[in-house]
Structures are given as structure tokens and as C-alpha cells.
Design a protein around this nucleic acid. Structure first.
Lengths: 245, 245
DNA sequence: CGCATACTTGAGCCGAATCAATTGGCGTGG
DNA sequence: CCACGCCAATTGATTCGGCTCAAGTATGCG
């Protein structure tokens, strides 16, 4: 039980130490892992919503289809992330989810979440923090879509993913696998795929980001941070667990 | 105690009936109301974050200043809304808040929220639902900024506010006070103020929305809904409280 | 080897930005 | 009651970032 720590437990420990019983409660959420393959749809907009998922391994994204045939990518999910928290308050899915790589995921029903609210103040606090953090990421993307040009948008997306990967994997170097096609990046940034291609060329010419296939290298992190107006407040996470326990 | 129901209690009862003790717990959050005047800053980006606020009356908005001198409006808050949930997980404010009208607000510290997590599963569930709902509104705005043109963006913003007002005030007709300048609307939609002006002219010519001063009238709600691809899923909120109690 | 999918590159166009001048409403003070 | 000034909104002229359409190049897979 000890050595083989589940992904969600690792994710939660980011917020502070967990007691034996909390760990057990959490691990109950990750039984019955399901394997999925790249491109697979987990659910679609309008499906009944009654459970959330953890991503044990792999990448996924959520999206909304627009009437005119285009779509907006809302979120990119990485290993350890929780998917579907948004719909806790709703009966239907507000967005679809597709896998970007072969993945392993665990589903658990909203009712279990409420059981946790009843049984563990500490886990409740962490779940609430995670929901708050997701909101913060969304507002950051709002800034990205509203007030930045294509160059800054693209730099920001790559940098956000880099920071999120580094958060759970501190020894990450300055390059990583990015299983997003230019079309998906375009749909996330409100651009056309053609222009995303041009923008990556520019980022390459400026010696800031090099993307080849599904692999990106950050060539000049300092300049990246200055272009996107990076603020370290991102990292200043709160620690309430001392108060809780 | 009965007749004079506080705003947050009314907001929470939207999710289901509350017990005597839950109501008391909630009301404890709304003691010491503070009056503020239009234009006042509640807090700025980078300020220490340690409390959330309820808006008893009045309107407010949150924003991020961008390096190039522009800014992005992230949220518009209406009476009964909860402000600052986003920063629960962080030590600093990620965005500033300003009042749009003279308002009455109540502050309460994050620690009290955790007390509620410990003492009431029902209120915890509601708080979690509210956080989830805020996330959903943010993703809807992401679609707005990413994949709609100025005409649709503007129609959507007005319509979103209309629906949110109507949610807590069902007998609302087809017009209401909108205390947002065209500059603020521009900052919310990622447009220039000049273009917002032109867009409202267009909406007027199309007999869809009429805005004069701070008053808007929805002239053709059906056509509005079709332009922005309105989906009723917005309204299909979940009811977990039966499970909780 | 051939096909499908992803990406690149060019030409022309369009929606929204910017700059600049003007109008209108409203509060203040004479 | 009018003159002044401030701010919000309108209108026009011009520019520009990113889109669309279209053709061509990799790359990977059966």
C-alpha cells in the first residue's frame, strides 16, 4: 500500500500531509481504473452528469461545440487532474471530454463526494481548493483570450502547461511531450490552425519555443515570462490544513 | 428573524430548504455589513487574500490589469453573489474588485468557511455547487471570448446578466438597469470601447437590444437566444440536498 | 506503396483596433 | 438659468492582425 501511491493521493498531498484514514477515503475513489485510448470520448455535451473522474495517467481535454461548426477547448487535463467538478451543480454535462493519449481514468459518483464532505473536513478543504484553483486557471485563460495577441496566447498556453507539469514533477527539464495538434491549440486559443502554425514559426525564429511533432522545448524561459506577464502569485498557494487538523 | 431574510440565505435557499441551524450558521456570515460607494476598490491584485465577501446589495466586477495598460474584466457580481471564492487556495488576490454601484457587502474569513465544512454537510454541498456554477459561467465566457464575434459577444453578455438577474428575481420583465460603461463592457469582451458603441448601434438597428444610459431592454429574446446558441442546460441545476439531509 | 492526417506557405480579405474629432448629458458654480 | 467642464458615447478614416481559401509538403500507418 505504501510504495505504490495512487496518483490522486500524490495530487492531494501537494496540499499537505494526509492521515491514514483520509488516505483510505481517497483511495476508495480510485478503485476500478478504466483504460481508454487516444481520441476516445469520455462523455459529450448534454450527457447526464453524475460523476467526476480522476486521470491516473494520460492527457485529456474538454470542449464545447459551437453552432457554426467551430469549437472552443475549455481545459486541458494532465495526469492527477480531476475532471468534471464543474458539473457538480448541474444535471447535464456542459462540455465534452476527449482523451489526447491512451489513458487510465477512475470514475466516482457525486454522492461519494458528498460522503467525503461528511466524513473529512480536510479532504473537503482540499477539494474546495482544487475547485478554486481550477477557477483561477480559467480566469487566467480569460485574460489570454481577451487581451493577448496570437504570439502571447500561444506562449502562454505552452508555459501554463509547463508550469502545471512542473508542479507535480519538479525535476522536469525545459522540454516535454505536448500531445496537442495545432488544430486543438487553435480551438483553445480562439485562433485558426493556420495562424497557430505561423505563430509557432515565429516563436521558433525568436528562439523562445521550439515545437516539433508532439515535443516542445522552452528555449528562453525568462523571455517567455516577460512576454506573457507572468506573475508568481500563481504559485503562492494557501495552506489551511494546519487549521483543519 | 423570519420576515427579514438576508440575501445570502435567499441565495442559498435557491438550492433547497435550510434547517434552522444551517440558517443560523449562514447568517453568522453576514453580520457587520459594510457600505461602499460606486467606484470604490474592495481590493487589488496582489493584496493578501484571507476572506470572501457576499454582496448584500449592489453590483461589482473583478478585473486583471495587463502590462500593456489594458485590462480584462473577469466577472460581474450581482446582489447575492459571493466574491473571492477563487482565491480560497491562494495567499494573494489574483484580481482586483471594484464596485459598480453603491453597495452593501459582508466579509468573512476563510477560516469560517472551514468551520462550515466541519459543521454542515448541507452548506458545504451548496458552497461547492456555487463554486462549480461559477466555473461554468467562466467556461461560458471562454466560449464567448474565443469563438464569437463582437455582435454575438455583446448579445451574450447582456443575456447572461439578464438570466442571472431573473434567477433570483423571476418576475423580472424584459428590461433592467445595467450599470456598466461601454469601456467596462469592452474590457469584459476583449473589444475596444469604440467597437462596443458600434455594436450596440447594430443591436438596436436589428431590434434586438436597446441600451440607453444604464438601462437595457431586450426587444427580441428569441432571436437573442438563437444568435448566441443558448442552451437550456444552464438552468438544469442539480439537487443534492435530499441526499445530504 | 498509397492514403490520410498534420503541417506549412502564399494571396487576398475582413473584422475590429486605433486615432481623432464631435456630440450629448450631467453636475457644479457663477 | 446659463456657462463651463468632465466623462461617456458616437462617428469617420485608416490600419492591421488574423481569417479564409487554396495549393503544396511532410510524416506516419496499413
Amino acid at each position: 500500500m505504501s510504495g505504490n501511491e495512487s496518483c490522486i493521493v500524490r495530487h492531494f498531498k501537494h496540499y499537505g500531509p494526509l492521515s491514514e484514514s483520509d488516505t483510505k477515503l481517497l483511495q476508495a475513489l480510485e478503485k476500478e481504473p478504466i483504460s481508454g485510448t487516444s481520441g476516445q470520448t469520455l462523455w459529450e455535451e448534454g450527457d447526464k452528469a453524475g460523476e467526476i473522474c480522476t486521470i491516473k495517467s494520460g492527457w485529456a481535454y474538454s470542449y464545447r461545440n459551437i453552432d457554426d461548426g467551430t469549437r472552443q477547448v475549455l481545459d486541458v487535463f494532465l495526469p492527477g487532474d480531476i475532471v468534471g467538478l464543474r458539473e457538480f451543480a448541474f444535471k447535464e454535462r456542459m462540455s465534452g471530454i476527449k482523451l489526447l493519449t491512451d489513458s487510465v481514468i477512475c470514475r466516482f459518483p457525486h454522492n461519494h463526494l458528498i460522503d467525503i464532505f461528511r466524513d473529512s473536513t480536510k479532504l473537503t478543504t482540499i477539494f474546495f481548493s482544487i475547485s478554486a484553483r481550477q477557477q483561477t486557471l480559467l480566469t487566467e485563460r480569460l485574460v489570454n483570450l481577451g487581451r493577448r495577441n496570437a504570439f502571447e496566447k500561444t506562449a502562454h498556453l505552452v508555459y501554463e502547461l509547463y508550469m502545471r507539469l512542473k508542479r507535480t514533477n519538479p525535476e522536469l527539464g525545459n522540454s516535454f511531450e505536448l500531445p496537442l495538434s495545432q488544430q486543438i491549440i487553435a480551438d483553445a486559443l480562439g485562433l485558426s490552425a493556420v495562424h497557430v502554425s505561423r505563430t509557432f514559426s515565429e516563436l521558433r525564429e525568436e528562439n523562445m519555443i521550439c515545437r516539433e511533432r508532439n515535443h516542445v522545448t522552452l528555449l528562453d524561459i525568462e523571455r517567455l515570462e516577460s512576454v506573457i506577464g507572468f506573475s508568481k502569485a500563481y504559485l503562492q498557494e494557501q495552506d489551511y490544513l494546519s487549521y483543519v487538523s
